[in-house]
Write a protein that binds this DNA or RNA. Structure first.
Lengths: 252, 252
DNA sequence: CTAACATTTTTCCAACTGGTCAAAAATCTG
DNA sequence: CAGATTTTTGACCAGTTGGAAAAATGTTAG
């Protein structure tokens, strides 16, 4: 019995397989042609990637078959294999595109803006992504759950750098007394977690909210709630006519 | 660590497949013997379930093979199949046990306690579960990502009922002015999301925190941060000598 | 000790899956 | 339109996987 181990980091494309498309006989002095890529090729590849996103995000990489993807893409399996020589290749492409998309909202958080406006906007953007691109979110979550075998290195470099930079921005705001002093990394984690939750755990959210507030309104509710949470937490404002809330001392 | 199993809600064995063990020829008047379950059977089943948790949580259901589970469990595939006639059966058992474990922390939130203490304790418990039982968390997340095919009905009944009940508790606290008025359901979601994140997205968290704060201390940091978040959010307390924070108006 | 029963191992298989290949069909180019 | 090139298809294959059957090996009550 030979249980296949997951190889974590894919080394160079093993040269054992015949090259696809152009650059087949590239072993000369020329540093490999850039490969033109015809119009039809790009179109079909897009169709395939779209179909693969659909299937992968719903079934996971190993749970998906090329046949399924091909069917969703409206072509035969060998035909699909003509455009992407291996299943892994499709997944790789999807993942690298995904990471770029995923980093974008955080990049937009400007150091020179108003802290609360910036943070709120960031939360909004992430929430919108969860609402509008749930499949991408699930694909990403899937990869994380599996230990991110295909993108750990990118996480440790690109993602880490970006987060370090933004954490620095948050720290500056804290130094200026504009937001409360706390851990900037965990702050970012909590924004990720709370927003992506609505895509990744959608079934659960809908099961609990039921048909009432489970409709599309739930994203508006979520936005309102998260705003409250990140702005003031759960401590009630002292209302006119009442003493200071007795809850403060309970936790400090 | 040996995660103790709680009692599970065992669904009756589907009658479509040949019966295992005893009660093979039960087609008479007797309403099917309860099947005693020998000591060794229970032991082996536990070993198998533990191994299956390990494998399923790391590779997902379809990504796991019976061979892998059998190897981790230290037995042969057919031997494993002797205790669980089908792969699905193992998964089913795991899931139903899991749900019970998963609901427990929320159940402990007492209506007659101090709101902030109760909420903080709940967050702590969930965070501890993420730290101590990350595999269970990932197994659960996996099922959610897939649309929870095996437990939707339980979500819609058991989980929903529990959450409805606790949402009611939260609402009462809000009515009493003890915590700020906000959406109790999304409040619960945010606690789930922020805590489980540390188990499910562990790779990402560690990649970003690096070797510095990425060690075991991260759970303490997370606990501290989440306490701040849920208690006061990000609004800084006005410090002696400074005017009220200028941020308040930015969001309201 | 032995029959009855529980457990384990050996061998096997059919379905599925990722992938190949050559030939047919379609498309493009001059 | 002819020829070259690209795209599509059908047939096929080898490895894996879930699972069945049955034989072999314990285990235990009487």
């Amino acid at each position: 019995m030979a249980p296949r181990k997951l190889k974590s980091v894919e080394p160079q494309p093993s040269p054992k397989r015949r090259q696809h498309k152009a650059d087949a006989k590239a072993a000369t002095a020329a540093p490999a042609k850039p490969r033109p890529l015809t119009r039809i090729q790009r179109e079909k590849q897009d169709i395939i990637l779209e179909a693969a996103l659909e299937v992968f995000s719903a079934e996971g990489f190993r749970g998906s078959t090329i046949d399924q993807i091909a069917e969703v893409a409206g072509m035969s399996k060998p035909n699909l294999l003509y455009y992407f020589p291996r299943k892994e290749e499709i997944h790789r492409r999807l993942m690298s595109e995904l990471l770029v998309t995923w980093l974008a909202p955080l990049e937009e958080m400007r150091a020179d803006g108003d802290p609360f406006v910036e943070i709120r906007s960031y939360i909004r953007r992430k929430l919108e992504m969860a609402r509008d691109f749930p499949r991408q979110s699930r694909l990403f979550a899937n990869e994380m759950l599996r230990g991110a075998p295909h993108i750990v290195d990118m996480l440790e470099v690109d993602l880490k750098n970006l987060v370090d930079e933004k954490a620095q921005v948050l720290l500056t705001w804290m130094d200026q007394g504009k937001i409360t002093r706390t851990d900037p990394y965990h702050l970012i984690f909590s924004i990720w977690a709370t927003t992506q939750h609505y895509a990744d755990f959608d079934v659960q959210v809908r099961a609990i909210l039921g048909r009432g507030r489970g409709g599309e309104g739930r994203y508006e509710d979520a936005a309102r709630y998260l705003e409250q949470l990140f702005l003031h937490g759960l401590t009630p404002k002292p209302r006119p006519g009442s003493k200071a809330p007795p809850a403060g001392g309970a936790l400090d």
